[in-house]
Design a protein around this nucleic acid. Structure first.
Lengths: 198, 198
DNA sequence: AATTGTTTATGACCTAAATCATAAGGGTTC
DNA sequence: GAACCCTTATGATTTAGGTCATAAACAATT
């Protein structure tokens, strides 16, 4: 996350997207840096039979879609506004100039990439083999700890749907519903009128 | 990948590991930057029932295990020498000094992180749902294109075992063996005395 | 208040991949 | 060259999770 005023001095434009709107698409060349001012953005893929996989959900203050700027590849996923959202956009060239001019901001981008890589590494190991219940607890714990900074037991009300959990873990809704019930029985989760707590 | 001489000016030590030796372990705090001079290194996890998942395989010239240096978290996986290997090691503090002093090297690290993130994003979508045959072709294509820079059909002799493919994809050896046979029938792979070609 | 759509819920059934067992080929070491 | 181990191979069986169908709870919109 880069300080707003710096972004503006490097030609940032403020864009607004309404809920459900596409920000960029899988396969497009990466031309811009994006940073969220307000709202939420998800990055996702669809496999051959239309099933969605959510790569990640991003919140105000976070940037997204930078890796292809550095790696010179096409976007590996779509980006879509999950709610009405305001986003700052900086062209690739300006962005690279900015990093040169502000080493401390460069470092903060590197840190953001590193922590996403950390999350992906954990999820990869998890997705590869573990049972549904493990996978579900892992994203919930990730959201709780790394996104919402909560640590008290059951202090976190899961604010995404069972369907979104399914799309983040590669499971099916029904499986998520059954697994969360089973997790409730085991005391790992609480369910208060349909809302999950962890 | 950072120029060797620069690493030495920042206190790099050359370490040698023999095949199978552990370089660091999951859960340890990340204290050093590592870059491979010769040999191969894999990063891996083991799940509750002992099944291995290979996060990635790294070759001469590549660095590994940097994300936790930036993200201030513990190692999410083990690192083990796949062959006898020589590795340069720089302490975290020296490494961060190095990045400050050499913005261009910092950028190359950022690029390395970005391209790994790209790979992880693709594999995550793949792992989440696709059938075994898809998954297998994806890592093979990744190795062919991004690691060995080959593009001619069947020019790439897959140099990892069926077991390692299984550990990279989260499948079982038997499934990999059956799927590769089926892929050969479909003309996607060739198998010449047990070796896979793509 | 009625309508429509989304989210959660549950049961029945089916299928693909894991599991288990067993073996043969090839490489390495003593 | 015997012993050992790893890799590839194949068949039989099991099972977890996907698939399909159906519905109730709730939210949003008219």
């Amino acid at each position: 996350m880069i300080a707003e005023d710096i972004l503006y001095t490097f030609g940032a434009e403020k864009l607004t997207f309404s809920k459900g709107e596409q920000i960029f698409s899988e396969g497009q060349p990466a031309l811009c840096y994006f940073q969220i001012l307000s709202g939420e953005v998800k990055m996702n893929n669809f496999n051959d039979d239309g099933k969605e996989f959510i790569q990640g959900i991003f919140f105000a203050g976070q940037s997204f879609g930078e890796p292809p700027l550095f790696a010179d590849v096409k976007y590996p996923a779509h980006a879509e506004a999950l709610s009405d959202a305001e986003v700052l956009r900086v062209s690739k060239d300006d962005f690279l100039e900015l990093l040169k001019a502000h080493p401390d901001e460069h470092l903060s981008i590197t840190k953001a990439l590193a922590s996403r890589l950390y999350y992906k590494a954990i999820m990869a190991a998890e997705l590869s083999s573990q049972e549904p219940e493990h996978r579900i607890l892992r994203i919930i714990d990730y959201l709780k700890k790394h996104v919402h900074d909560l640590y008290e037991p059951f202090s976190f009300q899961v604010n995404i749907t069972r369907q979104q959990i399914a799309d983040l873990t590669g499971l099916r809704v029904e499986t998520v519903i059954r697994a969360t019930k089973s997790l409730e029985k085991k005391g790992e989760l609480k369910i208060k009128n349909r809302k999950l707590f962890r």
